[in-house]
């Protein structure tokens, strides 16, 4: 015979944690000012977001067992992220282009590639994340890894310039008038073989 009380208690804790994750995500969108709500609410949303983060143990020290325990549970249950996909608005997508410089002066253009469409969706997800400010510290190392994946297939390349940009698609009326998508460069890195050897 199972204990209804234990199950009910788990149910309560589980969904309180999910509520906190969802609220933190939603409040973060409001605090960033990316919703149609008045800007006056941004400040309060930020404060409330901190409350939700507290509930998830994020205010505790990194080594805190409570914080780590909650994080482990959330990841194990797949509920560590909120559910605001494609919201409040569908963001621009992103492109990473490599200029490959050869010794003989040739220049080729390439993008990071995967074989399957399912993996291509994941690559897009990676590029979209790189554009987020919270991933800024990782940008150079991730782009370097992606450049290296291209380099492995073309070992004769001497230098790679990686340019990352945001692609702004035209709206419907602009598309009808023949306007194409525009690329807004965000950052670029140069990688040379010498740098890799060092």
């Amino acid at each position: 015979m199972f204990s209804k009380r234990i199950h009910a208690a788990w149910f309560g804790i589980h969904f309180v944690l999910i509520t906190a994750v969802c609220l933190a995500g939603l409040l973060s969108l409001i605090a960033e000012g990316s919703t149609i709500l008045p800007a006056a609410l941004d400040r309060y949303a930020r404060k409330a977001e901190l409350g939700a983060a507290w509930l998830l143990g994020k205010q505790a020290a990194e080594s805190s067992p409570v914080r780590q325990g909650i994080a482990t549970y959330l990841h194990a249950a797949g509920v560590q992220a909120g559910y605001s996909f494609f919201a409040p608005n569908v963001p621009s997508y992103h492109k990473l282009t490599f200029e490959l410089f050869y010794d003989d002066g040739r220049v080729e253009y390439e993008s990071p590639r995967v074989r399957s469409k399912a993996a291509a969706l994941r690559l897009d997800s990676l590029l979209d994340r790189l554009a987020e400010s919270r991933y800024e510290p990782l940008r150079e190392v991730v782009v370097k890894m992606l450049a290296f994946s291209v380099w492995r297939e073309r070992p004769e390349v001497k230098k790679i310039r990686a340019t990352f940009g945001s692609v702004n698609p035209p709206d419907i009326s602009e598309f009808e008038h023949g306007k194409a998508e525009t690329l807004q460069p965000m950052f670029s890195f140069d990688f040379s073989l010498r740098e890799r050897e060092r």
């Binding site: 969802c22 149609i36 709500l37 605001s84 919201a87 698609p169 419907i172």
Partner: peptide, 20 residues
């Protein structure tokens, strides 16, 4: 949560988000 977050974006009310 997904619906509420979408309601807070103007692009879902004029169809531009579906287009994008």
């Amino acid at each position: 949560i997904g619906g509420l977050a979408k309601c807070l974006g103007n692009g879902w009310w004029n169809g531009s988000n579906l287009w994008r």
